[in-house]
Amino acid sequence: MRVLRRVIFPIVWVLIFAVIALALVKLAFIDGLRNDGEQLVPQAQIAAPVIAANRATVTNTVELAGTVQSDAAVPVRATAAGKVVFFFVDKGAQLAAGDRILQIRSEVVPDPSTAAATTDDGASADTAKALPAAPSYTYTDVLAPVAGTLETLALLLNQEVSVGDNAGSVSPGTFSITGALTTAQQFRLLGKPATATGTITTGPAPFTCSNVQLGNKKTQDTGGVGASMVPAAMVGPIEPVAPAESGAGQVTCAVPAGTAVFAGLGATITLTAGEAKDVLTLPLTAVKGTVQNGVVWVPAVDGNGVPQERPVVLGLNDGDKVEISSGLAEGEQVLEFVPGMDAAVPNGQMPGIGPMGG
């Protein structure tokens, strides 16, 4: 043991240190000074994800939040010029469409040629002048434009009116659901559905909502209040306000009579604007454009070239996938994401971070 510890072990350690020293010398003075002209190139390659066009069913269903609103009162207009001589009903009366509300008396101006003809029966001109013609009148009834409650009555007895003057208003007592539409939803509803399904929050069962109307969203005029009410101490650079989404509109549909609702209730409107079964589809992320015409990118045959743009004709889309009417064959592959556009990130997830949790 004494020989092993005093002779063998020291020799082994010397040999180990010698090998390490020789390796360091080789790395520093031999391999480090050698210039073989070789260039390092990355070996890993990132391939753009592709997806194949396949067949599926596209149901163009748009669901949006809305609010129950009372339908606006319908104005009652004078339909003749003259004097109000009679009221058939009082304010607050329940009316059916076409019921009489008031009566207007209009004086008929005699025709001068007719007046001249009355002197041909032998009477003298002096007698004709001495006996003025008795006035004649016509009577016009102003009718209720819709069924409902006579909310206002704007005229008085013996008041002179002209055609088109406001005579009052009739509240129909009906309700509608109104919801806001984004630009993308407006494009999806170009083929306006005739009916929708309305669902009242914590209310009656879903019902068919008729008379679907699409239009521009009404804007409220602030009258410049925001600019005039800024305190003097706060005068300075103001952060720009993001403009509202261009082309935002609204949809309105009628609540069926007899449905228990009241103004201000929350509701959901579901509109179905068509269904295409067993059609060629792609995810919307793979297509630039969502309506009528679009562009897809077909990868190069060798996989290394520049992807080629290809126009396609689009049909229905459901917000996730779109129908490809022409321009692609079934199974043909395209880039899954439009070049230069950010991939869609699920709600609540930060870009670049995968979903968390088990």
Results as ranks from 00 to 15, higher is better:
Ala286Cys: 09
Ser70Cys: 04
Pro311Arg: 13
Arg77Thr: 12
Ala154Glu: 14
Asp36Val: 11
Leu214Gly: 11
Ser210Arg: 07
Val255Asp: 00
Pro243Arg: 01
Ala267Met: 05
Glu63Trp: 08
Ala286Thr: 03
Ser136Cys: 09
Ala78Arg: 05
Thr197Trp: 05
Glu309Tyr: 08
Gly203Val: 08
Asn293Ala: 13
Gly331Pro: 12
Ile177Asn: 13
Phe207Ser: 00
Ile11Ser: 14
Thr149Tyr: 04
Phe9Ala: 10
Leu284His: 12
Ala244Gly: 05
Gln349Pro: 06
Thr182Ala: 01
Val306Asn: 13
Leu284Ser: 02
Met229Ala: 00
Ile16Tyr: 07
Pro299Lys: 08
Ala263Asn: 14
Lys129Pro: 02
Val279Lys: 00
Gln250Ala: 10
Pro135Glu: 10
Ala133Gly: 14
Ala242Ser: 10
Ala97Ile: 08
Met341Ala: 08
Pro135Ala: 14
Thr290Cys: 08
Val345Asp: 08
Ala134Ile: 15
Ile11Lys: 04
Phe175Lys: 01
Phe88Gln: 15
Pro231Met: 11
Asp126Ala: 15
Thr174Lys: 11
Ile200Gln: 04
Ala227Val: 15
Gly37Asp: 06
Ala93Val: 04
Phe187Arg: 02
Glu160Met: 04
Thr149Trp: 05
Lys218Tyr: 07
Leu314Gln: 03
Asn304Phe: 12
Gln69Lys: 14
Glu330Met: 13
Thr259His: 00
Gln250Thr: 06
Val84Thr: 04
Leu143Met: 03
Asn211Ala: 07
Glu309Gln: 15
Lys26Cys: 06
Gly66Met: 11
Met356Val: 15
Gly357Gln: 03
Thr219Gly: 14
Asp221Ser: 15
Glu107His: 03
Ala300Asp: 09
